Amino acid sequence: MIWNLGSINADNFYLLPHLPGPGETISARKFRQGLGGKGANMSVAAARAGTRVMHIGALGADGGWALERLLEYGVETAHITLMEGATGHANIAVDFEGENNIVIFPGTNHEFTEEMIGAALSEASSGDWLLMQNETNGQNFAARTGKTLGLRLAYAAAPFDPEAILAIIDHIDLLVLNEVEAAQLRKATGAELRQLPVDDIVVTLGAGGCEWVSNKVHRIETYPAYPVEAVDTTGAGDTFTGYLVAGLDRGMTMPQAIDLAMRAGALMVTRHGTADVIPDLKDVRDHDFDV
């Protein structure tokens, strides 16, 4: 089972002819709102990948719709707390080439208490996965508590903050980064990825595929990407991570889980949206990639 200490956002999408520069005003061609946040995206991806996932999160009084949608998508929500304040949201600009930039307001995602986290993790079993990202507070307490309870910790280091990751790096079993974040981590630590105290590190490389650095079995492997026509890269990394951890939770080997996650991520970039359009396991297995 996966216990995901994660953000939940309302995602506001604006389709633009190009991404705006400093001081530029530009009219959006389309607008829509959906469920998002790195945490929610990963929970939905893990659930659609066929594993049981409990989301640990917080919503404002305006967030009841998000709770219902997570339930609809197969995510367990008993440890999502409704509180005062505004639900987190993200304003996402997407250009005609599928590139994006994002402005995030954390809202209730930064109002977790140790009591909320502890109550959830007290129900976990040794060997379960604890999944976290850097869009909430409470990570240090959750990491320490999770390791005390025998959980395996997967950390998606985004948005990247060297202090946040270094504070829990000794507890991390699986670290997922993109290429830019990996470079930032090397700079922050002064060390190569193979020198870090983390059993497994996966670096996503976009159209270049991904790299697996196993410090447990001392191997580095690169996996090519599946060729697709990208229309929107938003949420692709979250989909990859959710599927990756779900695959490992279901007993797959790391290469098997990476392949499944890469298929899911490739299919995701052919769709506009985030949590609402994450592909399910049947979609991923049935899709015929032209390789």
Rank of each mutant, 00 (worst) to 15 (best):
I2Q: 12
N4C: 14
G6I: 10
N12L: 15
N12C: 14
L15M: 15
L15K: 13
L15S: 15
L16F: 00
P20M: 01
E24S: 08
T25H: 09
S27R: 12
A28G: 15
R29N: 09
K30A: 15
F31I: 07
R32C: 01
Q33M: 14
G34M: 09
A40V: 05
S43V: 03
A45V: 07
R48L: 04
T51A: 08
R52A: 12
R52Q: 03
M54C: 11
H55T: 12
A58G: 06
A58N: 04
G60W: 03
G64N: 11
W65L: 12
L71M: 03
V75M: 00
H79G: 03
I80H: 01
V94S: 07
V94E: 00
F96E: 15
E99Y: 09
N100K: 06
I102V: 14
I104K: 00
F105M: 13
F105Q: 00
F112A: 02
E115L: 10
A120R: 08
L121H: 06
E123L: 15
A124S: 15
A124E: 11
S125G: 08
S126C: 14
L131N: 04
L131K: 12
G138V: 01
A142R: 02
R144H: 14
G146A: 15
K147C: 00
R152H: 06
L153H: 05
L153K: 04
Y155W: 04
A156Y: 09
A156K: 06
A156F: 03
A157N: 04
A157Y: 02
A157W: 04
F160H: 07
D161R: 07
P162Y: 04
A164H: 05
A164P: 01
I165A: 00
A167D: 13
I169L: 15
D173L: 07
D173V: 08
L175M: 09
L177A: 13
N178I: 05
V180M: 11
E181W: 01
A182Q: 01
A182M: 02
L185Q: 06
R194F: 14
Q195C: 11
P197G: 00
I201G: 01
L205A: 03
G208R: 12
V213A: 03
V213L: 05
V213R: 06
S214T: 01
V217F: 12
T222Y: 00
P227H: 07
P227K: 07
T233V: 10
T234H: 10
T234E: 12
D238W: 10
L248C: 04
P255V: 05
Q256I: 10
D259E: 14
A261F: 07
G265P: 04
G265L: 03
M268K: 15
R271W: 11
V277H: 10
P279I: 09
P279K: 05
K282N: 13
D283W: 09
V284Y: 11
D286T: 06
D286L: 08
F289H: 08
